[in-house]
Nucleic acid binder design. Structure first.
Length: 829
RNA sequence: GCGGGCGUGCUGGAAUCUAGGCAUACAGGCCAGGCUUAGAACCUGGUGCUCGAAAGAGCUUGAGGGUUCGAAUCCCUCCGCCCGCACCA
C-alpha cells in the first residue's frame, strides 16, 4: 500500500490543471462559450502582495475556491479571477529605506504570492490576471478619473484635510481611525490644502438606499449606514442683527427651537474672528481658537471631557420667538458636520446641557417628559424623549412629533428655514503626495488652468526617480523632465500634477477589468461586463466594510450613470470571513505568531491546509490556529487515501449495491446518500463548511467500521466503492487534489467533469426510526418504530416499553402528545 | 452612552436559534486495549457532571424568572466577553 504523499499527488493535478487551462473560461462570443449555462462570478478581495501569505489569506481563497468548484459542478459557468493590488505605501516605505525601486520589490512579492497560490491549487483563471501598477491597467484608472472629471465628480478644492506627518501625505477621512493614521498609527494633523476629491456625497442617498437591494451581512450594512449618517431635519437661520450676519444651523429637532437659550460656533468657523473683533472677549477667543485647532482630533473626540468654550460677546435672534440669545465658541461643535454652528437646547440635549451647567446658562423645558428613566436632575432634564410641548407659545399642548413638521413649514413661509438632510459622509479625498501610485492625468497651464489630458495621451506613465523620500510634496515633483510638459489645449508650458491617486481608486474597479483584462481599446467591453456582472459572491475581510466596499459601490453607480455598465451594485452577495488568530491574538510579525501558509502546505500539503481552515469552525467566525487540529484533518485525509488504496486492491468494479436493502451494505449506501444531502445543504446554507466536512468524516467512519464485512461480496464491494467515490466527490471543493486522485482511482473519471451528485430520496428515508418516548418531558426510552406508523401505533409502542412502564405505572396519564415520525410525550400525574 | 453579535463538555465546535421535540455530531485532548523487542504511525473502545459495584437515578447549554406537554432555541431581568459607532446637532 502506498503512503499518502500530498506533495506528489498535488503536483500531478496542478500540472494537469495548468497544462489544460482547466479553470479558464471564455467570454460571450469567444470560442468555447456556453450560452446555455448560467453564469457565476466568484471573487475574493484583491490581495496586496507583501511578503509571504499567511493562513489568514489562505482562508479567504479556500472559501472562495470551494464556492467556485461547487458552482461549476452544479452547471454554472464560473469566472474566478485573481490579480494584485500593487501600488501602495509598504513598497514605497521599503524603497525609502533600501533604495530598491518599489516596482522591483512589488513584482518580487507578486511572484511569491503567485507561487504560493499555485502550490495551493486554487482554481483561478490566470488568463485574466491583472496588477494595478501596470500601465495596461492604470491607463484605465486614469481614464475613469477623466470620466469622473468630465462629469464633475472629480474636482480640486481647498479644504481642511487630515495630514499624516509620518507618511507625509493627506489621508481620506476613512483612513483616520481615532485621530490616528490607519497605516502608521501616528496622530494626524489638520491642514488646509488644495486637493483632489471625488464627489461621493452626490451618491449618499443611493449608497444608503441600495443597501436594501444587496445580500450582505447585516453588520456590514449597518456600518455603511452609520458611516453615511443621513439625518433628516431642518436648516434654521439665526441672525446676528448687530453685524448683519446670518447663521444657518442644522437641527434634527426643530420641535425644540423654543428651548434654544444660547448659540455655539465651532472654533474653525470662518466668522468667529469677525464676531469677536472689537469685543472685550477678542483676545480670549483668539487664544481659545488657536488651542482648539492645534489639539488633535483624538483629544477633541473624547466625550467624557469637560465642556470648554468662550463667549463671543454677541447675540443672535431666535427666529421662532425673536429672543436674543448669547453666542459662544466651543470645540464640542464640529466644523465638519452641518454648518459648523448649532442652536443649543440644554433642556433636551445632553451636550448642550453639560455646557449650560458649566457656564451657568439658562435651561428651559419645552417638552414634558413622561419617562422617569430619562431624568438626570431634579427637573427631569435634559430630556431627549417625546412628549407634549410647553413654553412654546402657539405650539403648547401639541405632541412634539406633530409640531416638528408644522414648525418647519412655518419657518419656510417666514423665509428663515427649510427642511434639510445632512450626511456624515464627506467627499473622498483621492490625491496623495506619494510616488508609488497611479499618476493623476491632469496638467496645470498658466493660461488654461487645470487641464485634463485627452484620452489619447494616456497612460501618463509613472516616471523613474532616484529619491523616494517624501518632502511634503510628491517625490514626482523632482522628476523635472516629466513634470514640465506642454498644455494639450494651448501648447504652452504646463506642469503635470505630481500627486498620485489613493490606492483605493485602483481597487474600486478591478472586478470590471477582469472581465476583459487584455482590451487595449477600452477599459472593458460592455457585452462582457453585462454578461458577468454583478459579482455573485464576493469574499473578504470585514476590515474593508467601509472603505473599499463603499468606494467600489460609488464607482459602479457613477459608471452606470455614464452608461458604461448596466448594474447598480458591484457585489450582489458578500461573505466576510472571520480572522484566524494564534494563541488568541491577531497574527502579526511583531508578535512573532504568524503561521505561514507555505510552511503549512510544505508540512501537510495544500489539501490539509485548505480543508483545515474550512473545518476550524463556521467560516464567518474567527478561530484559533492549533497545530494539533491540523493534524486531525491530515489524519482524516490520510484515512481517505488508505481506504482508496484498499478498495482498489481488494474490490472489483461492476457490482451493484442498489439491491441491498438491509445489513452493512445498505447502511453504508444510506450513509453515502445522507452525506451527499448534508454536504449539499451545508454549502448552500450560509457556508456551513465545517459541518459539511464533518459529514464526510462521518461517512468515512462508517465505511471504516463496516468495510471488512463488505469485502468479498459484489453488493458489499459496490457499497464501499460508492462510499469512497462519494466521499471524494463531495470533499472536492475543500481538498481538490486528493479528491481528484481518489475519484479517478475508483471511477476512472475526473471529478470536476462530473456533475455534483444528487442523493437518492428513497435512500434518505429509512423505513424505521427511533421513536423518542418522554414522560413529563423527560426522555425515558428510544423505541424502534416503522416510519409510517400512525398515532395509535406509536402510542401502543411507547406504552409497551418497559422503561416507560416503570415511569407511568401507578400514575394517571392525563395527556398524550404524539409527533409522528419523532416522539411521544406522556404527561402523568 | 448608542447599535450589533456572542456565552453549550477539558478545548474548537454540533444540534435548519430563521420551524421549540434524543443536548454535546465531527475534531482535538485524555484514558484503556490491540499491533510492536520498544517507540512512532495505525486500529478498536471509552470519555458532560454527581451518586452507584451495576442496573439505574438525579443534575446540566453564563445567572435568575416566565410561556409550553416539552426550551440551548421564544419572552423578561441581570452578569460577562467581542465588534462597530461615538460631542454628528
Amino acid at each position: 500500500m502506498l503512503r499518502y504523499d500530498p506533495a506528489q499527488i498535488e503536483a500531478r493535478w496542478r500540472r494537469i490543471w495548468d497544462e489544460e487551462h482547466t479553470w479558464e473560461v471564455p467570454n460571450p462570443g469567444q470560442p468555447g462559450f456556453d450560452d446555455s449555462a448560467p453564469k457565476c462570478y466568484v471573487l475574493e478581495m484583491l490581495p496586496y502582495p507583501s511578503g509571504d501569505p499567511h493562513v489568514g489569506h489562505l482562508k479567504n481563497y479556500a472559501i472562495g475556491d470551494a464556492i467556485a468548484h461547487y458552482r461549476r459542478r452544479n452547471g454554472f459557468q464560473v469566472v474566478h479571477p485573481m490579480g494584485f493590488d500593487a501600488f501602495g505605501l509598504p513598497a514605497e516605505n521599503n524603497a525609502i529605506k533600501t533604495g530598491e525601486p518599489p516596482r522591483v520589490a512589488t513584482e518580487r512579492s507578486i511572484d511569491a504570492y503567485k507561487k504560493a497560490f499555485d502550490r495551493l491549487g486554487f482554481s483561478f483563471d490566470w488568463a485574466r490576471e491583472l496588477s494595478s501598477h501596470e500601465p495596461s491597467y492604470y491607463r484605465w484608472t486614469q481614464w475613469i478619473f477623466l470620466k469622473l472629471f468630465e462629469r464633475g465628480l472629480a474636482y480640486r478644492d481647498e479644504a481642511l484635510v487630515q495630514w499624516c506627518p509620518f507618511d507625509q501625505t493627506v489621508l481620506a477621512n476613512e483612513q483616520v481611525i481615532d485621530g490616528r493614521c490607519e497605516r502608521c498609527g501616528n496622530l494626524v494633523e489638520v491642514r488646509e490644502l488644495e486637493q483632489w476629491f471625488f464627489r461621493i456625497t452626490d451618491y449618499a442617498d443611493r449608497l444608503l438606499d441600495d443597501l436594501d437591494t444587496i445580500d450582505w451581512p447585516e453588520h456590514v450594512k449597518t456600518m455603511q449606514r452609520n458611516w453615511i449618517g443621513r439625518s433628516h431635519g431642518a436648516e434654521v437661520i439665526f441672525r446676528c442683527e448687530e453685524l448683519g450676519i446670518e447663521f444657518p444651523v442644522f437641527t434634527t429637532r426643530p420641535d425644540t427651537l423654543f428651548g434654544a437659550t444660547f448659540f455655539v460656533l465651532a472654533p474653525e468657523h470662518h466668522d468667529v474672528e469677525r464676531l469677536a473683533a472689537g469685543t472685550e472677549h477678542e483676545d480670549a477667543v483668539r487664544q481659545y481658537v488657536n488651542e482648539a485647532i492645534r489639539a488633535s482630533a483624538e483629544e477633541r473626540g473624547a466625550m467624557e471631557r469637560e465642556k470648554t468654550g468662550v463667549p463671543l460677546g454677541r447675540a443672535v435672534t431666535n427666529p421662532v420667538n425673536g429672543e436674543e440669545i448669547p453666542m459662544f465658541v466651543a470645540d464640542y461643535v464640529l466644523m465638519e458636520y452641518g454648518t459648523g454652528a448649532i442652536m443649543a437646547v440644554p433642556g433636551h440635549d445632553d451636550r448642550d446641557y453639560a455646557f449650560a451647567t458649566a457656564f451657568d446658562l439658562p435651561i428651559l423645558r419645552v417638552i414634558e417628559g413622561t419617562d422617569p428613566e430619562e431624568a438626570q436632575d431634579d427637573d427631569g432634564l435634559p430630556y431627549s424623549g417625546d412628549g407634549e410641548m410647553v413654553n412654546s407659545e402657539r405650539f403648547d399642548g401639541k405632541h412634539n412629533r406633530e409640531a416638528h413638521d408644522e414648525i418647519v413649514s412655518w419657518l419656510e413661509s417666514e423665509g428663515c428655514g427649510k427642511p434639510a438632510v445632512h450626511y456624515r459622509l464627506r467627499d473622498w479625498l483621492v490625491s496623495r503626495q506619494r510616488y508609488w501610485g497611479c499618476p493623476i492625468p491632469v496638467v496645470y497651464c498658466e493660461t488654461d488652468g487645470i487641464v485634463p489630458l485627452p484620452e489619447d495621451h494616456l497612460p501618463v506613465l509613472l516616471p523613474e526617480v532616484d529619491d523616494y523620500a517624501p518632502k511634503g510634496q510628491s517625490p514626482l515633483a523632482a522628476a523635472t523632465d516629466w513634470v514640465n510638459t506642454e498644455c494639450p489645449k494651448c501648447g504652452g508650458p504646463a506642469r503635470r500634477e505630481t500627486d498620485t491617486m489613493d490606492t483605493f481608486v485602483d481597487s474600486s474597479w478591478y472586478f470590471l477589468r477582469y472581465l476583459d483584462a487584455h482590451n487595449d481599446e477600452a477599459a472593458w467591453d460592455r457585452a462582457a461586463v453585462d454578461y458577468w456582472m454583478p459579482v455573485d459572491q464576493y469574499i473578504g475581510g470585514v476590515e474593508h466594510a467601509i472603505l473599499h466596499l463603499m468606494y467600489a459601490r460609488f464607482f459602479v453607480k457613477a459608471l452606470a450613470d455614464m452608461d458604461f455598465l448596466g448594474v447598480q451594485e458591484p457585489f450582489a452577495r458578500l461573505f466576510t470571513q472571520g480572522m484566524i488568530t494564534r494563541d488568541g491574538a491577531k497574527m502579526s510579525s511583531s508578535k512573532g505568531n504568524v503561521v505561514s501558509a507555505s510552511e503549512t502546505v510544505e508540512r501537510y500539503g495544500a489539501d490539509t491546509a485548505r480543508a483545515y481552515v474550512c473545518f476550524m469552525g463556521p467560516p464567518d467566525k474567527g478561530g484559533d490556529w492549533t497545530d494539533k487540529s491540523v493534524e486531525g484533518v491530515h489524519r482524516f485525509l490520510t484515512r481517505l487515501w488508505r481506504l482508496k488504496e484498499e478498495v482498489v486492491e481488494r474490490t472489483s468494479p461492476g457490482g451493484d449495491a442498489d439491491g441491498a436493502t438491509q445489513g452493512p451494505a445498505a447502511e453504508l449506501l444510506r450513509k453515502s446518500h445522507w452525506a451527499i444531502d448534508k454536504v449539499t445543504r451545508d454549502i448552500e446554507r450560509d457556508f456551513g463548511f465545517n459541518t459539511a466536512i464533518a459529514a464526510v468524516m462521518e461517512l468515512l467512519n462508517v465505511a471504516y467500521t463496516r468495510k471488512d464485512d463488505l469485502y468479498g461480496n459484489p453488493a458489499g464491494e459496490a457499497a464501499v466503492r460508492f462510499a469512497t467515490q462519494t466521499a471524494a466527490s463531495i470533499l472536492f471543493p475543500f481538498a481538490p487534489h486528493l479528491s481528484a486522485e481518489v475519484y479517478e482511482a475508483i471511477t476512472g473519471r475526473r471529478v470536476w467533469e462530473d456533475a455534483w451528485p444528487k442523493p437518492d430520496p428513497a435512500l434518505l428515508e429509512s423505513d424505521v426510526f427511533t421513536l423518542v418516548v418522554q414522560v413529563n418531558g423527560k426522555r425515558r426510552a428510544g423505541v424502534e418504530a416503522p416510519a409510517g406508523a400512525s398515532r395509535d401505533e406509536l402510542l401502543d409502542l411507547a406504552l409497551s416499553d418497559t422503561a416507560v412502564r416503570r415511569h407511568i405505572d401507578g400514575k394517571q396519564v392525563v395527556k398524550e402528545i404524539v409527533v409522528p415520525g419523532k416522539l411521544v410525550n406522556l404527561v402523568v400525574k
